[in-house]
Simulated scan of single mutants.
Amino acid sequence: MPTAFPTSAAEPAGNQCALCEREVQRTSRHHLVPREEGGRHGPTADLCQPCHSTIHLLLDNKALARRYASIEQLRTAQELQKYLHWIRRSRVERISNRRGRR
């Protein structure tokens, strides 16, 4: 089965968001099961900043751990459908941190 990302050293490693599948300048590592819910050493996914920020805005850590512990599950999350429809057609690289101060 072919991989979604280039693996050859000759090919430049593209930064593709695992959730929205857009080519972006930077990605960040998202723990599919949040560290606070036991996912410190678990699988991760590279996400663009808008997707990473929006996931944490719309879904709490318990929901991420229990219902959305894979990219496929996140892609089907009802809470993210409107956002995903918008971001896939957008050239936005960064959005302000909307999590708020704790």
Rank of each mutant, 00 (worst) to 15 (best):
Y68E: 05
P34W: 09
V92D: 03
A77T: 01
H31S: 06
R102T: 11
R98P: 03
A65I: 05
E79L: 02
L59N: 12
E72K: 05
L47K: 02
P50E: 09
R66L: 14
A13R: 08
F5R: 09
A18W: 10
N61Y: 13
S28N: 10
L57S: 12
E79V: 07
L58P: 01
Y83L: 01
Q78P: 05
G42V: 13
K82T: 15
C48Q: 06
A45V: 02
Q25W: 14
N97R: 14
T76P: 02
Q25H: 12
K82Y: 09
G42C: 12
S70E: 08
I71M: 01
R88L: 13
A10L: 14
Y68H: 10
T7K: 09
V24L: 04
C48M: 00
H52W: 00
I71W: 03
A45R: 01
L74M: 08
L80K: 05
E93T: 03
K62H: 13
A63I: 07
H31I: 10
P43A: 06
A18E: 15
D60S: 11
P34M: 12
S70T: 15
T27N: 00
T44F: 07
Q73F: 11
A4E: 11
C17P: 01
Q78V: 05
D60G: 07
L74R: 05
I87Q: 01
D60K: 09
L80F: 03
T7A: 12
A65K: 08
Y83N: 00
A65F: 02
R29H: 13
G100L: 02
E37D: 01
L57I: 13
M1F: 07
G39S: 07
A69T: 10
A69S: 15
R101A: 10
R35F: 13
R94A: 13
R99N: 13
L64E: 06
S8K: 10
C48P: 00
P50K: 04
T54K: 05
L59S: 09
R22W: 11
E21Q: 08
C17F: 06
I95D: 02
L57G: 11
Y68N: 01
R75M: 08
